[in-house]
Computed example of a mutant assay.
Amino acid sequence: MKFHTRKWVKPEDLNPNKTLFGGKLLAWIDEEAALYSIIQLENSHVVTKFMSEINFMASAKEGDIVEIGLDVVKFGNTSIVLKCKVRNKMTHETIITVDQITMVNLDSNGKPKLHGKNQIEYVSERLSKKEPGV
């Protein structure tokens, strides 16, 4: 799993128990899944369709640093399915796992759009495909 983003847990991210608010963490995951999907599908019109069962295993407290990791499970015709793991860099514990996050590629009218992708692409690979001087 590749860990793409780190977040610093600040006072405004805490619940009344003084630990990381689950809703804040889910918002971070959703944003990271959207950004990852936008880059992979090369389309800024991507939405979350489905998120599977969420398994909270540990938490984080103020000052902790959490990392969000994503991997592609599969490419659909108009979607990309991801899995996610969030870990606490300070305690080395897994905070949460999400087995499936389905992101859907949309056209300008908000309808599902074929994306033609079937494997992960990295920016360096895309750059090498372009002709010199383009």
Rank of each mutant, 00 (worst) to 15 (best):
M1P: 06
K2M: 12
H4E: 14
R6N: 09
R6K: 14
R6H: 04
K7N: 06
K7Y: 11
W8A: 05
W8F: 15
V9W: 06
V9N: 03
K10I: 03
E12H: 15
E12R: 12
E12A: 15
L14W: 05
N15I: 10
P16M: 09
T19G: 04
F21K: 06
G23P: 00
K24R: 15
I29N: 01
D30H: 04
D30R: 06
E32C: 03
E32G: 00
A33K: 01
A33M: 00
A34N: 03
A34V: 11
A34L: 10
L35Y: 05
Y36W: 08
S37Q: 02
S37L: 05
I38L: 01
I39R: 13
I39S: 10
Q40C: 03
L41W: 12
N43I: 09
N43M: 06
S44P: 03
S44Q: 08
H45Q: 14
V46I: 15
V47F: 06
T48W: 00
T48N: 05
K49S: 15
S52F: 07
S52D: 15
E53S: 14
E53W: 00
I54S: 04
F56A: 08
F56L: 11
M57E: 07
M57N: 01
M57I: 05
A58H: 12
A58W: 03
A60K: 00
K61V: 13
K61F: 03
K61D: 00
E62H: 11
E62F: 14
I65T: 06
I65S: 05
I65V: 15
V66Y: 01
E67F: 09
E67A: 15
V72H: 04
V73Q: 04
F75Y: 15
F75G: 03
F75L: 01
N77T: 13
S79D: 01
S79F: 06
I80C: 07
V81Y: 05
V81N: 10
L82G: 10
C84G: 08
R87N: 09
N88K: 04
K89M: 15
K89P: 00
M90K: 14
T91G: 10
E93N: 13
E93A: 14
E93W: 02
T94N: 11
T94C: 09
I95M: 14
T97N: 07
V98Y: 01
V98H: 01
V98R: 00
V98A: 02
Q100H: 13
Q100S: 12
Q100I: 01
M103L: 08
N105I: 06
L106H: 09
L106P: 06
L106I: 04
D107N: 15
D107S: 08
S108V: 10
N109D: 14
N109G: 11
G110E: 08
K111G: 02
K111P: 02
K111N: 13
P112A: 11
P112S: 08
K113W: 02
K113Q: 15
L114M: 14
L114R: 15
L114S: 13
G116Y: 07
K117L: 01
K117Y: 02
Q119F: 02
Q119P: 00
E121I: 08
E121T: 13
V123K: 07
E125C: 05
L127C: 11
S128R: 05
K130I: 11
P132I: 10
G133P: 01
V134H: 09
V134E: 08
V134Y: 12
V134D: 10
